[in-house]
Design a protein around this nucleic acid. Sequence first.
DNA 1: CATTCAACTTGATATAGATCAAGTTCGCTT
DNA 2: AAGCGAACTTGATCTATATCAAGTTGAATG
Lengths: 198, 198
Amino acid sequence: MKHKDNHSSALAALKANVLKLTEMQEAEWEDFSSHWHYCSLEKGEYLIREGETERYFYYVISGVLRGYFLIDGEEICVGFTYDDDYSGSYDSFLSQRPSEWYLQAITDTRLLRISHSDLMHMFDQYKSVERWGRMFNAKILIGMSRRQLEVRSYTAEEKFERLMSQSPHIFQLVPQKYLASYLGMTPETLSRLRKKRK
Amino acid sequence: MKHKDNHSSALAALKANVLKLTEMQEAEWEDFSSHWHYCSLEKGEYLIREGETERYFYYVISGVLRGYFLIDGEEICVGFTYDDDYSGSYDSFLSQRPSEWYLQAITDTRLLRISHSDLMHMFDQYKSVERWGRMFNAKILIGMSRRQLEVRSYTAEEKFERLMSQSPHIFQLVPQKYLASYLGMTPETLSRLRKKRK
DNA sequence: CATTCAACTTGATATAGATCAAGTTCGCTT
DNA sequence: AAGCGAACTTGATCTATATCAAGTTGAATG
């Protein structure tokens, strides 16, 4: 029963994560967790494409995803998701309007997901889930504020140095060209900065 | 009773705004609204400064505010708030940690505000308020996603043109130097773009 | 293990927009 | 309405980073 084991250990991880933001009674958790289903993506597959409306909210068990939008044929990377984090085109999920960006697995990825209608139903039913939703949104929002400051305040070199010192592991997980885009520079510039640092 | 009139018409505006996001029973609204208090700022005064922790959540009745952060002595403008919108260093309010940015009134401003502890109490008490909180966070988050795309995808000239066509009124309300910073360019560059357009 | 294609590196050149330096205009204050 | 300072404009440079153009490496595949 490999699949079942996977699923229950994934749910345990999700549970720990959810309980960081809200208290929840055991019966509530039982019901809530029953709406999350296992799914997976192979390297290169898309979770969502521009123009599609996001019908699921995801929790990443393992793997790495990159989010990007496409402007005049150029891919602009907005972020990455790793294990023990949530994913999906969240603004599209919330507004239920077409996504403006893509989410692609850059390694094989295992996830749990809950559908929009199931989650809305959970919000209606349980105040604890409603609170989790509010707190989760708050957390994302705080992260986006930080990131906004980061993107706007620093030169290419400073952004590189800050990422280097704050998340060195990312340089192992993510190809340079995506990182360069994430940092708002060309791959050539990133390559030169790395050389300079050695 | 000028002040009282002010206050009750402001509350009516707030009520209409709140009801856009959630249903609320009349008794709930009565209680919720009793925690909002009137306050005002003169042009140039600060709603909050970097390092202070945001204790209030604001609703702007009239006036214009600008938000900015300060990096190496340079002010970087992140946004503006007008009437019928919410304000405050919202990430600081949510996390109850020191604000990383400033909020300054650029005209005389009238506001309503609710304290963090009162709002938390309201969240505990009413599911409808909890939902409003979640929906409100979602709305902010969606706006930030859009703005992120805007900031990262376009050249100075494109950003200028887009702002010109989407919010021409802003050019009347906000001094050029703040707008330039908001668009991520120097005042000189904005001036040249305006000239070019004529 | 040879081949191939994409990912990186490196160098030469181009350019958008910054910076520096005078003006000029506009809105307050007295 | 005169005078002042801040906000804008305009022009002349400067520079960080993009772009273009070859290489080189390296991982995946038959």
